[in-house]
Design a binder for these strands. Structure first.
Lengths: 223, 223
DNA sequence: TTGCTAAACGGAACATTGTTCCATATCTGC
DNA sequence: GCAGATATGGAACAATGTTCCGTTTAGCAA
């Protein structure tokens, strides 16, 4: 009841991440008893992709409890197809979030190539903030007690922390921001910022984020 | 996402408590346009009580998402009756939790009369712990984003903190425990203890609680 | 006690959503 | 192009939420 969210977030264990990765990777292949690998059909792969995309959009607007039919319909497939690939709702949820985490993480690389260290950091923080803002019902899922979600907080941290760490380091080395900021602290802070308030709070959140970014710049070596 | 539960817990505002109390008190009476008060029918009152009792038991075993029919059946009433009195599920949840908080708080008075200050404290902490342990799904409800639950954390704190404060003070004055313990800290600590682990964790939680109680006693002035 | 009336009741009926199953359609390797 | 394996869609069933209304009952006055 009074448990801290950070407990879940902190409770990362290596095995959890490995399990998650293995589960998701194995989804691409099916190995029969002989040990050989057969690639799954192309249409099946397309549908899986469409489902994840549809679920992402619907989760963002209606939360993770949105009707299964709605997701299947938006993906343009039948409910049977959805159930074959994602037997439990949690499978879909995990799939969607992993996908979005990956997208957010890879955006960091793009930004790093496209902008200077300071701007890359700034852009990525906004991108990360966007990610959090669309996570309606994620907190509730994390607290649902369903063990299926146990691996998620660890997956988030183990992906986001190194990413931000790297951006911070580059920006600090370039003298664009101060160098005494901990990546995990910052991730948590933004998470806290973004999870208060509803839809009208999005703007407020972005203003506060700007403020934080300015705060990072203020203590830079360069000035 | 990374928001602390303590935020909700800390977010107590007087008005929230007042609103909740008014809502619950008004439930007993209906005043018509003339300003006079009419008491509600006795059977209606009985049924409301039966519903809250049934819901309490079922929430504890099946969580707050248990089927409405099941609750109505255990209370021995039709679903229509349930819906008339508690139009939304959150109304039931709030009603049940308020009731249990009240019961837990009034147990403190009993213990204080029945035992010496130190034992009264010890008994009450175990009672409180029991309360937390039966709160399956409460955390999830708190994080569901439903504003109907906004008042709950405040209600908890504004009732439990003074209660424990008083018990601590008495026990400290009697020299049975140390005097530097903050009630809120202790409530949170027990909450954290009790919310990790499932059913098999209940025993573990109680052992850890005993340890804490011994810790309170260790620094007593008297020894 | 009896009769009247408003309040309350119960549960059938309807609505929504989750889940299963299989006849049909599609893909892949040859 | 063919055959077999694979995947599909959506009807059908199940579980649950919600509404509605004919019936019952408590409270009250005579």
């Amino acid at each position: 009841m009074f448990r801290l969210a950070s407990e879940k977030f902190d409770g990362w264990i290596l095995s959890a991440r490995l399990k998650l990765n293995l589960f998701l990777e194995n989804n691409r292949m099916t190995d029969d008893t002989t040990g050989t690998k057969k690639s799954i059909r192309a249409d099946a792969l397309r549908n899986e992709d469409a489902l994840l995309e549809a679920a992402k959009e619907i989760f963002a607007t209606s939360g993770v409890d949105a009707p299964v039919r709605e997701i299947a319909a938006r993906a343009g497939v039948g409910v049977g197809t959805l159930y074959r690939r994602f037997p439990k709702r949690s499978d879909l949820v995990v799939g969607v979030y992993k996908r979005e985490v990956d997208a957010c993480v890879s955006a960091a690389t793009e930004f790093a190539q496209q902008y200077g260290p300071g701007d890359a950091l700034s852009h990525w923080l906004k991108r990360y903030c966007q990610f959090i803002l669309t996570k309606k019902g994620l907190a509730a899922a994390l607290y649902s007690g369903d063990p299926a979600f146990d691996a998620l907080p660890g997956y988030f941290r183990s992906n986001f922390e190194p990413t931000l760490q790297s951006l911070l380091k580059s920006a600090a080395k370039a003298g664009e921001i101060r160098g005494d900021i901990d990546a995990y602290d910052l991730l948590r802070a933004i998470g806290n910022l973004a999870s208060t308030g509803g839809s009208e709070g999005a703007e407020h959140t972005h203003r506060m984020l700007e403020l934080m970014i300015d705060g990072l710049r203020f203590g830079a070596k360069g000035r």
